[in-house]
Every structure is written in structure tokens, then in C-alpha cells.
Amino acid sequence: MSQVFWQDRLRLYGTVWRVQFKNNWVREAVYRMNFLSSFGVDIVWIGIELSLFAVIYSNVPVLAGWTKYQVYFFLGIFFSSDALFTIFFQRNFFNFSDLVNKGELDILLTKPVHPLFLALTRWMNVSAFFNFLMGIFIAVHYSEPAGFQGGARWLLLIFWLLVGLASAVLIRFAFAVWIFWTDRNWALLRLYYQFFAFATKPDPIYPNVIRYLILTALPFAFIGSVPARALLHGLQAWEYLALVLVLLGFFALNTMLWRKGLKRYQSASS
């Protein structure tokens, strides 16, 4: 394939994404109260997570080697990473089961772009952008007492946020794709959110079995904990390798399941 071909494809995808972003922005601007209320809910959620650790640290000085400020720094990274997922992907995953169950995937399969691209980028939640900023603010505010060296290392934050986002998308997709085989994936969705709770704490606090699980088979630690650890102390060589292998493994598994799922897909719209 020529370079021109890829440039054209990239331009096409860029244009489609830009149009979708514009549509979503207009919708958010119309439902202003919804915009404000979802912002409010996330602020309360952030407040509760911070309060939980404030209560714990009012009783102990250190938790599995993590000081209060290091945990707050981790929470800042986690909130930002999660907000990125909320902005760009969450609504699409909520609607994913309808695409398959109601046959709405038909129309996406006829478009001249990859159906998965459309399925996962159509809806955005622009209001979560404030939560992203809030997460960044928390991370920046507690970076110094947490022992983060700052300076040029802040550039690494962008990389680690993208790692967190990619991990969240890959894990969420691995839970969502089973809709091709099940009529209702409500139970799996609940299970996802139950496991997601493990992402809201730094991974060193977990016993070895759970820690191993959230660093391999269910890599929820890659959303916030591993990025925060990498920024604060750096990771060991095997951890970088494990990160790459696990994410590639999930990518391969998801691709295989998507292809098998598509073969099984029967339009429900006719």
C-alpha cells in the first residue's frame, strides 16, 4: 500500500472523528443541566475517594509503603486516566450491546471505515473534561509532597495517561465483546464494575494473589496504579515487559473475539 493511501485513510478517519466530536459537543451544549449534573456527580465521587483515604490516614501514617500524598497523587492520575476513558469511550460501551442485540451494527458494517472505529468513537461525554482537569490538578498539587521529581518527567505523564486509557479500553472491550454470544451482558457488565473497584487503590496494598491478578489477567492496575508508580519510583524491567505483553495479549484476544463475534452476528433489524 502506498504512503498516499495511508495518508488518505488517516485523513478520512480524522474527518469522521472531528464530525462526531462536533455533534457530541453540540448535544452537550443543548443539555446544559445534564452537563453540570454529571460534572457534579464526578466531583462527589472524587471527594468520596479522597475522604476514604483521609479517614484511613487519620489512623495510620503509611499504607503498604505509600504516604497519604503519594496516594493522593495516584488518585489524581487515576481520575485523569478514567476521565479520558469517560470522555471518549464510556458511552460507546454502554451502547455496544444495543448495536448487536438490535441489529444497529448493520449500518456500521456498510460504512467505508472500520465498524469498530465507529462503534467505539460515536458517542463522547465532553462534560468529563472537567474531571480530567480536576485529576490533573490533584496530581500536580500533591506531586511535590509525594516525592515526584517533576521537570521534564511531566512529559511522561502524557505517555502513562495513554497507557491507562488503552488499558481501560482493552479491558472494557474484553468484557463487552461477549454480547455476540449472550443475549444480555448485564451480569458481565456488573462484574466489570465490581473488578474496577480494584483500580481505585494502589496495587502494592493488595495481597500477592489479587495483585498478580490485576497486573495480568485483569490488568486494572494499569489504569492508574502502575502509571503512578512509574512516575513516582519507576518500574522494574520485567514490569515494563509484562505491561507490553499483557496489553498486546489483550489486543490479540479482543481482535480474535471481535472477528469470531462478527461471524456469529445475525442482524436483528429485519
Binding site: 484511613i56 489512623n59 495510620v60 503509611v62 499504607l63 503498604a64 509503603g65 451480569a187 456488573r190 462484574l191 465490581q194 473488578f195 473497584a197 480494584f198 487503590k201 502494592p204 496494598i205 493488595y206 495481597p207 489479587i210
Partner: peptide
């Protein structure tokens, strides 16, 4: 059943993990 299991397991697991971190690790 999965709802009961999940609703019971997760908050309890998080509590248990915190106690583990405070007492066994800390």
C-alpha cells in the same frame, strides 16, 4: 446470584485488603 456475589464480595474485599495492608504489611 452474580449481583449478590458482586455486591457482597467487592466492598468486603476492599475492606479486607485495607486491613491486610495496615496490619500485615504495615
Amino acid at each position: 446470584i452474580s449481583e449478590i456475589f458482586g455486591a457482597a464480595f467487592v466492598p468486603a474485599a476492599i475492606q479486607a485488603v485495607l486491613w491486610y495492608a495496615i496490619f500485615k504489611v504495615g
